[in-house]
């Protein structure tokens, strides 16, 4: 916990407000446009309309792509958090050249241009006879976002220090008990944060997805292909709905998962 003087708080609040303007400003354009008639790429500001939402409801292709994106996003996020936690614990449990090599390998796909990771995986799947499908997309995304989840967890584990864990071991706790009762509770906010970042990266991944997918499309692939003919108005509606749903989900998550009393105890 950090306490701030009144003046410092106001200053920081002003900066934060400006950052929020930067972050949300660009989103206002598609959101506002979604409530008006869009004719050939021009928004007619004097003709309010919900036709974009109607068009979206009828656009099965886009909705299916959104569904695929969510499936891949959640799967890849859960996988990379689970694997990331295990790998991070292993890294922090000792010091060896093998561990450094492992860490290097984890970072590699994140450091490579996406087309390299995508092509390498595609050729790998082809050579090993794995048919391309949503599963291979999930693997591809996990490989890609893993670095980010792992890194965030490792930084937190190292700041935890060994005392708590040693104490637990001294009390006779097994490795599994230590993991569940000591390590995971201390990683809670880190896991949530790493999860959101991983999900966000997966949600927007285009090139790797295209290369390792079979015949399933995700939202970024559809949007990417749409650039040739221009975005249809229902995309504005989609952006608006995604934003509203995400914000509601955040409100819900904060209210349900973080009771007022507990939220300072981490």
């Amino acid at each position: 916990m950090i306490r701030l003087s009144g003046m410092a708080t106001s200053l920081l609040a002003a900066i934060t407000l400006a950052v929020f303007l930067l972050l949300y400003g660009p989103l206002l354009i598609p959101i506002l446009s979604s409530f008006f008639t869009v004719s050939h790429g021009d928004v007619l500001w004097n003709q309010p309309s919900l036709s974009a939402y109607g068009a979206l409801a009828g656009n099965g292709g886009i909705l299916k792509a959104v569904g695929n994106t969510l499936i891949v996003g959640f799967s890849a996020t859960l996988l990379s958090l689970a694997v990331g936690t295990l790998l991070a614990i292993h890294y922090c449990s000792g010091k060896s050249a093998g561990r450094e090599a492992m860490q290097f390998a984890i970072y590699l796909p994140f450091l490579m241009p996406p087309i390299i990771t995508g092509l390498a995986l595609l050729i790998f799947f082809r050579e090993t006879g794995v048919p391309r499908s949503l599963i291979t997309v999930i693997v591809g995304h996990t490989v890609f976002v893993q670095a980010l989840a792992y890194r965030t967890i490792v930084v937190r584990l190292q700041s935890l220090g060994p005392s708590m864990i040693e104490a637990s071991a001294d009390l006779g706790a097994s490795a599994f008990q230590t993991l569940v009762h000591i390590i995971l509770p201390n990683l809670r906010s880190t896991l949530i944060g790493a999860g959101v970042l991983s999900f966000a990266l997966s949600f927007d991944e285009t090139l790797i997805t295209l290369l390792v997918t079979g015949t399933e499309s995700t939202l970024p692939i559809r949007l990417w292909a749409m650039m040739r003919l221009g975005f249809t108005p229902d995309i504005n509606a989609l952006v608006t709905i995604v934003l509203v749903l995400t914000v509601l989900l955040c409100v819900f998550a904060v209210r349900q998962l973080l009771p007022e009393a507990q939220s300072n105890s981490e």
Partner: peptide
């Protein structure tokens, strides 16, 4: 069933 993937 025709499954279409669009490219950019």
């Amino acid at each position: 069933t025709a499954n279409v993937v669009f490219i950019g």
